[in-house]
Every structure is written in C-alpha cells, then in structure tokens.
Design a protein around this nucleic acid. Sequence first.
DNA 1: TGCTATTATTTAGACGGCTAAACAAAAAAG
DNA 2: CTTTTTTGTTTAGCCGTCTAAATAATAGCA
Lengths: 153, 153
Amino acid sequence: MRQIQDYIGFQLLQIHKAHRRLAEAALNKLGVHTGQELILLQLWIEEGIPQSQLAACMEVEPPTATKMLQRMESAGLIVRRQDPEDARVSRVYLTARGRALEQPILDVWKQLEAQTVTGLSLTEQALLHRLLLQVSTNLSQHVVLAVHPVRET
Amino acid sequence: MRQIQDYIGFQLLQIHKAHRRLAEAALNKLGVHTGQELILLQLWIEEGIPQSQLAACMEVEPPTATKMLQRMESAGLIVRRQDPEDARVSRVYLTARGRALEQPILDVWKQLEAQTVTGLSLTEQALLHRLLLQVSTNLSQHVVLAVHPVRET
DNA sequence: TGCTATTATTTAGACGGCTAAACAAAAAAG
DNA sequence: CTTTTTTGTTTAGCCGTCTAAATAATAGCA
C-alpha cells in the first residue's frame, strides 16, 4: 500500500502547518494573528463592508468572523458600527492602527511567498500555480465521500 | 502589485481549508476528528509508543498531543498506560474500537486523495508531488522573516 | 395591520493548534 | 547521597475553526 506520506493530501497538510508557523511568528510581532490579516486585507480594499460579507469572502462561517472581529476590536485594529439603514448588519471599519499595518503585513506576505517558492524557476512556479488551481477546484466540489461501516471484531 | 489570490501561499491556505472540510465530514461519521486519524495511523504502525514520540512524529507540540489523547481516550479509541520502567512516560495503546477504524479511515484517505488529484495525469501528479516537496523543504527552514516597524500616522 | 418567514449576528461549546508555566520523575553533578 | 538539571506530561489560557441554537430586526404575506 502507498504510504500516507506519499499522498498529496498529506503533503498539503504539512506544508500548511509549516506555512502557518512562519506566518504566525512574523505576524505576532505586528500584534496580529494568522487569519486576521486576511480580514485586514479585505478592509484595505473595501472598508465598511458588512461582516457577513467579510465572512463570505474569507470563506469562513459567521460565528468565526464574529469571534475574530471581537478580538480585533479589543486589540484596537477595527471598529464595528451598526448600519443606520438596517439595524441587523454591522459594518466593519479600520482604526488608524489597523490602517498602519497595511505595508508591514503585505511585506510579510511577500517575504513568505519568496520563501515558499525558493528554488523554483518562474516556469515551475506557474506550473505549480496551475496544478494547485486544479486541486482547489477538485476539493471545492462538496461531494460526500463514502464511509464504510466499522465492523468491530 | 500582485493580488494576494495569486500567491502560492494563499492557494495553499484555501486548499487546506477545503481539504479539511471534506475530511472532517467523512471522519465525523466514524466518530473521529481530523488530526486524530494521524495519531491512529501511527498507532496502527507501532502501538504502545510514548506520547512524546507520537507528538514528535506528528510534528505537534506536547500539549496538543495531551489534549487530543485525552479526548480520544474519553471516546474509547485509545488507552494510555504509564511505562513501568520510567514513570514519566505514558504509552499509548489502541482499543478494539480504535483498531476497527483502520480500514474505514484508510479508505477515507484514499478517496480523498483520488478527489484531490482528479483531472491530473500521473505525470502531473508526480510533478506536483515534487514541487510540493521543494515547497515543504523551503518552509521547514525555520527562518525568521524580517518585520518592518509600524509607523502610525 | 399583525403574524410569519427570512436574514444578520451572537452565544455556547466542541476541536486542533500554540505558548508559558507548573509538576513529577529520572538523570547528572557535586 | 543530596542537590541540581533535564525530561515527559499536564494545566491554563489564547486563537481559528466548526455546528447548533438563541436573538434581533427586516421583509413578506394574509
């Protein structure tokens, strides 16, 4: 049987862990946690969007967004204000502190990307990107895997 | 500037999320959570290993292993027994329930892998594997990324 | 108008992951 | 042989992630 270590799926798991480790270390120095920078990234593009939309474009469930935003608000990175037209929606805005993180965080991502593709030619990078796009598509189909029943001996 | 969506690092993040989603859905039906199956995987190879070693080969910190094993013990998947020779180490053993999960879980992984590489030729799969190996190596160097100071306006 | 969906957010609680600090037992040093 | 150091595990507490259920406010419909 093939070793689990040979599975692409397993490699992706390990890579993700390593990638996260490096990102976390760098972002912590800026007072941010991995994941939060993606929220900021969206806000730098479009400030004041409803948090439901923020959750959607991050592909995260609403409760996850709620928690993260609560923490980011406590940390003084963002503020939330109720929409005057629709009292249900809460819109998210940057603070000066949140705005000031744009360049440093983009820089962290840039360095991390450089580290990630070290030793790969531009051709290989493009190829990897294409292959990962296919994988991404494959996994986004929300198929239901068959699960064989457990027969206890 | 390059969009963050074009970064290999960002693709890896999304892929991991999707992969985890599918794995979690399938494993839940077997009464297991993602991550726990990797512990079982190791135990099917080598039962009775010290949990420090288990943590090491999963590349996870000791407290993480402790928590997971506590839950898995509550769930009746494993048991932990103190080593008689060295009272510090706790060795991990499978229960019948944990042993019975071997085939179903391997099957889930096999299906998930098939889903992952759908549409890729064997050549492309080998290529992807090789490229990911390089990325894995790149990210395993525990370099320290430079972090530019934040200048608030 | 008033009742019923529907929609946006939050709370509660579980899980994987981490760091820092406590704890216990064995090994090393004096 | 006693003290100090090292090693293995655990506790506490934080963060991201999820699901299920509660809450609140708008929109729809009779």
